[in-house]
C-alpha cells in the first residue's frame, strides 16, 4: 500500500476523531439544556441542530465558504487578527464537519437523558447534590449506551461525509483530501483499483461501528 493511501485514511480518521472529540465537549451541555430546560426558542434551536439531517451538505458548505471569505466579517476577522484563512484548510473543514455532525451527537445524548426517570435526578437533589454532581454521578453512569451510540454515530457519519468536505476543503492531499473525496477523485481518473481499496476500508469501518451500536442498544433500545 502506498503512502498516499495511508495518509488519506489517517487524515480521514483525524478529521472524524477531532470532530467527535469537539462534539463530545459541546454536545453534553447542549443535550442537557434541550433535555431538561424550557426556553422559548427551544424549538428553533432543536430545528437548527437537526437541519443537517435534511439539508444538502452543499448548502452548509456554501454558507461556510461565504463566512470564511475575507470579504465578510468572520473571515476578515480571522485574516486580520490571526492571519488565517479557513477555506480549503483542515481547520475549516473541521469546523464545518462539527456543525454538520451536531445532530448525530446531540440526539442520542438527548434521548439518553430524557429516558432516565425524573425521580433519579430529583432524589439526588433532595440528597443535597448539585445539578453538576447529579450529572456526573447519576446521569452519565446511567446513559453509557447512549454515550457510546452518540460517539460512534458521529464518528461514522464523519467518515462518510462528502459534500461539506468538497465544498469547504476541496481536494488537497494531506490537508483536506479524505477517503470519500479520494474515491470520487480516483474514479474520475479511472483508477478503479484504488477506488475499490478505499471503498472496502470505509465499508468495513462503517459496518463494524454500526454493528457495535446496534448490539449495544439491543438491550437498551434508543431511538436514533
Amino acid at each position: 500500500m502506498d503512502q498516499d493511501f495511508i495518509n488519506t485514511l489517517l487524515l480521514t480518521g483525524k478529521l472524524a476523531g477531532w470532530t467527535t472529540a469537539i462534539l463530545f465537549v459541546v454536545g453534553f451541555p447542549l443535550a442537557y439544556l434541550l433535555a431538561y430546560k424550557r426556553f422559548w426558542v427551544k424549538p428553533v434551536v432543536e430545528a437548527l441542530i437537526s437541519m443537517p439531517m435534511v439539508l444538502p451538505p452543499t448548502v452548509l458548505g456554501f454558507y461556510m465558504l461565504v463566512a470564511y471569505s475575507p470579504q465578510n466579517a468572520f473571515g476578515r476577522f480571522l485574516s486580520d487578527h490571526f492571519n488565517t484563512r479557513l477555506a480549503f484548510s483542515f481547520e475549516g473543514v473541521l469546523i464545518a464537519s462539527v456543525l454538520f455532525s451536531l445532530p448525530f451527537m446531540i440526539q442520542p445524548l438527548q434521548n439518553g437523558l430524557t429516558s432516565i426517570p425524573k425521580s433519579l435526578r430529583e432524589t439526588s437533589y433532595t440528597l443535597g447534590k448539585s445539578e453538576f454532581t447529579t450529572f456526573i454521578r447519576v446521569l452519565i453512569p446511567n446513559m453509557i449506551p447512549s454515550i457510546i451510540t452518540a460517539a460512534a454515530m458521529t464518528f461514522a457519519h464523519c467518515i462518510g461525509e462528502f459534500g461539506v468536505v468538497i465544498m469547504v476543503g476541496g481536494n488537497m492531499p494531506g490537508e483536506t483530501r479524505v477517503a470519500s473525496i479520494a474515491i470520487f477523485d480516483e474514479v474520475q481518473a479511472l483508477n478503479y483499483h484504488t477506488a475499490n481499496q478505499y471503498s472496502v476500508v470505509l465499508f468495513i469501518i462503517s459496518l463494524v461501528i454500526l454493528t457495535l451500536v446496534y448490539s449495544i442498544n439491543k438491550r437498551n433500545p434508543i431511538n436514533l
Binding site: 432524589t123 433532595t126 443535597g128 446511567n142
Partner: peptide, 18 residues
C-alpha cells in the same frame, strides 16, 4: 431542594441503578 434537607422517597423508590 438541596438546601432543605428533606428525605423524599418516590413511589418507584428511585434507587440509582449504577
Amino acid at each position: 431542594p438541596q438546601q432543605r434537607n428533606v428525605g423524599y422517597m418516590f413511589q418507584d423508590y428511585a434507587l440509582f441503578p449504577n
